[in-house]
């Protein structure tokens, strides 16, 4: 699901670009600080590997087949920061050479697939690594990376006014669930083979104490993206949320100020008020968890 240009309204793509650019830079710094000898060629070649892996089909009976997406596999082998950088590089090449995803929409695509997708692929593995459920963590990671990316993508499109009737949305959710299941299975199967070949290739996440944090962050990410998708299935509600936060849904209102009837809107709509508050709360919780984690890790290393 690479969003091309011309789908997202200016506020949507601009705010996602404003979000992705510093995040990608932070991931690049993080990947760079943990950089061992020869990591840049490795990351580049792994990017090419993920591209090439699409050629190898995985049969799933009755003539259907799927292929690897790769976020969870990369996160488990390179670590999340390097995986995010590699996925971003892949998205850049897809946008420039393959016309798969737009250049203005690159920020949105990076956010959906390279940032949220990689984190959703990594956190379940992070939570369950070191326990007997390690493979289950990899499976959920593969599954979630696809689901979260797709939910965010559909939500962003709906926020930009590209809506789908509920039935079509239902079908696409079903399709994405199957893709996600397949991604989980492929990730587990490939990591299983790799472990037999050379266990050194699989990274065991370091720092055991932050498991609860990862669980919280993962839950927040999943809740936020599914909430986003559910909201997009309720067009009226979403349109008002869009108006409320200044993301007007129509072209002519692209640069319009937030709606004047802001107050009445909030008061008249208890559901909306709760939904907005919920989303805001989730965002703040995630931020708080992140800061807390930073603080704890600094406190521990001090």
């Amino acid at each position: 699901m690479h969003i091309p240009d011309g789908f997202l309204t200016t506020p949507v793509w601009a705010s996602l670009a404003a979000l992705s650019l510093p995040s990608a830079a932070a991931f690049a710094r993080k990947a760079q600080s943990g950089l061992e000898d020869g990591r840049v060629p490795l990351m580049g070649v792994m990017g090419a590997f993920v591209f090439a892996a699409q050629m190898i089909n995985f049969p799933v009976g009755i003539g259907a087949s799927g292929h690897l997406v790769g976020s969870a596999l990369l996160a488990a082998t390179l670590g999340p920061a390097a995986a995010a950088v590699v996925m971003t590089a892949i998205l850049v090449i897809q946008a420039l050479i393959f016309q798969d995803g737009g250049l203005l929409a690159l920020g949105a695509n990076v956010f959906n697939m390279a940032i949220a997708g990689v984190l959703a692929g990594y956190w379940p593995y992070r939570i369950l690594s070191g326990t007997r459920g390690r493979m289950a963590g990899l499976f959920f990671g593969g599954f979630l990376s696809v689901i979260v990316s797709a939910a965010l993508c559909l939500g962003e499109l709906a926020l930009s006014g590209v809506r789908m009737p509920a039935q079509v949305l239902g079908i696409s959710v079903l399709v994405f669930s199957v893709t996600g299941l397949l991604e989980g299975l492929i990730t587990v199967a490939v990591i299983g083979s790799l472990t037999r070949m050379n266990p050194r290739w699989i990274r065991e996440p370091a720092g055991e104490g932050r498991r609860a944090l990862a669980l919280l962050a993962c839950a927040a990410l999943v809740l936020a993206s599914t909430g986003f998708l559910v909201a997009s299935a309720l067009p009226d509600g979403l349109e008002r949320v869009a108006g409320l936060v200044g993301l007007a849904g129509h072209e002519r209102a692209v640069l319009a100020a937030p709606l004047p009837d802001y107050d009445t809107l909030v008061i008249d709509n208890p559901w909306l008020r709760r939904a907005t508050a919920g989303l805001l709360g989730l965002g703040l919780t995630t931020l708080a968890c992140f800061l807390l984690g930073k603080w704890i890790s600094r406190w521990r290393s001090a």
Binding site: A28, Q32, V40, G44, G47, A52
Partner: peptide
């Protein structure tokens, strides 16, 4: 744009054909 990202993108593009050919041989 971060230097690391630019370099990784260079490498990905450079080896796309190479690894792609290998995937094709495997297939």
């Amino acid at each position: 744009v971060p230097r690391l990202l630019v370099e990784v993108t260079h490498f990905t593009w450079r080896y796309l054909g190479v690894i792609g050919a290998q995937a094709w041989r495997l297939k």
